[in-house]
Simulated assay, not measured.
Amino acid sequence: MNKVDSGIVIFDIDGTLTDSVEQHQRAFEIALRTFSFPNLRTNWGDYTHHTDSAIFEEAWEEAHYESRPDLSELEYQYRCALEHEIASRPFTEITGAAVFLQWLKDHSWSVVFATGSLRFGAVKKLAAVGVDAEKVDLVTASEFRTREEIVREAIRLGSKKFPAAHKHSVISIGDGLWDLKAANNLNLPFIGIGRDAKAKVLTDLGAPVFDNFINLMNNGIGLFR
């Protein structure tokens, strides 16, 4: 990855900034099951697009329902389920996430958040790292179906605040294979956050990976200079 002075950093949220994957997935499955899908597949990585809205639409098509998928009802059911989940297990940050976000701000990087989660969940997760979703650029699966669409919109929003940014100064940070694939499809540099088996999936594909943001700041901050 070439070093750059500043630009746009696009963050995934679940598993990247917040330890929230388990709560999110439980709430999402509960919400999906309210639609009585006859054969709901719960290996989310097997769906064509790894976003909440795309998974919902694909499950709807597989059920051969005649009506159109009701995303607003999914949003409502997800909100109810997620509030229950986080009441018993609140979201926590991935170590150093808030510090690193502040470092980027202090060094004039434009930060944008792009997630395959529905918007309500994304707002709650950002709050766990001290980010007010009303004051930042956030793109979610409530607005777009695919990771690539979500990231493209994030770049567009980030570019409005940083007009000089171009491809070599846009960096994507995520924890999942789908984050890396979207970055590769859009020809973006990628940095992984993760450990153990999750990290190995990314490192095997050539991505630099750090187990948390303190480690990134101690050993990989040159990627941002």
Results as ranks from 00 to 15, higher is better:
2 N>Q: 06
2 N>T: 04
5 D>K: 15
6 S>P: 04
6 S>E: 07
7 G>H: 03
9 V>Q: 05
12 D>F: 12
14 D>F: 03
19 D>Y: 10
20 S>T: 01
20 S>K: 03
21 V>A: 06
22 E>G: 02
23 Q>H: 02
24 H>F: 00
26 R>Q: 10
29 E>C: 11
35 F>G: 09
36 S>A: 06
38 P>L: 00
41 R>D: 07
41 R>Y: 02
41 R>K: 05
43 N>A: 11
44 W>S: 12
45 G>K: 15
46 D>T: 10
47 Y>D: 01
48 T>L: 10
51 T>F: 03
51 T>K: 01
52 D>T: 04
52 D>V: 01
53 S>R: 15
53 S>V: 13
53 S>N: 13
62 E>R: 15
62 E>T: 13
65 Y>Q: 09
66 E>L: 01
67 S>K: 11
69 P>C: 14
73 E>P: 02
73 E>G: 06
75 E>I: 04
78 Y>S: 04
78 Y>N: 02
78 Y>D: 07
81 A>Q: 03
81 A>N: 00
85 E>A: 01
87 A>T: 05
87 A>E: 06
90 P>C: 11
90 P>I: 09
91 F>H: 10
95 T>C: 10
97 A>C: 15
98 A>M: 15
99 V>N: 06
100 F>S: 09
103 W>S: 06
103 W>T: 06
103 W>A: 11
109 W>N: 00
115 T>Y: 14
115 T>F: 05
117 S>A: 05
118 L>H: 09
119 R>Q: 15
120 F>D: 11
122 A>Y: 10
122 A>K: 05
124 K>A: 13
124 K>P: 13
125 K>I: 02
126 L>F: 05
126 L>C: 14
128 A>H: 15
129 V>H: 07
130 G>E: 13
131 V>Y: 08
132 D>N: 14
135 K>Y: 13
138 L>W: 08
139 V>N: 08
140 T>Y: 08
141 A>R: 02
144 F>S: 12
144 F>K: 14
145 R>A: 08
145 R>L: 07
147 R>T: 01
147 R>A: 01
147 R>E: 07
149 E>A: 07
150 I>L: 03
151 V>P: 05
151 V>R: 15
152 R>M: 15
153 E>C: 10
154 A>Q: 12
157 L>I: 04
157 L>M: 06
157 L>F: 03
159 S>K: 02
160 K>D: 00
162 F>Y: 02
162 F>K: 04
165 A>Q: 05
166 H>G: 01
166 H>T: 01
167 K>D: 15
168 H>C: 07
169 S>Q: 14
172 S>Q: 10
175 D>C: 05
176 G>C: 06
179 D>W: 04
180 L>S: 01
181 K>G: 00
181 K>L: 00
182 A>N: 02
183 A>Y: 01
183 A>R: 00
188 L>Y: 14
190 F>P: 12
193 I>N: 01
200 K>L: 08
200 K>T: 13
202 L>E: 02
203 T>W: 09
203 T>R: 06
206 G>S: 12
208 P>K: 13
209 V>I: 07
210 F>K: 11
212 N>W: 02
215 N>I: 14
216 L>F: 11
216 L>P: 11
220 G>I: 10
220 G>M: 10
224 F>P: 11
224 F>M: 08
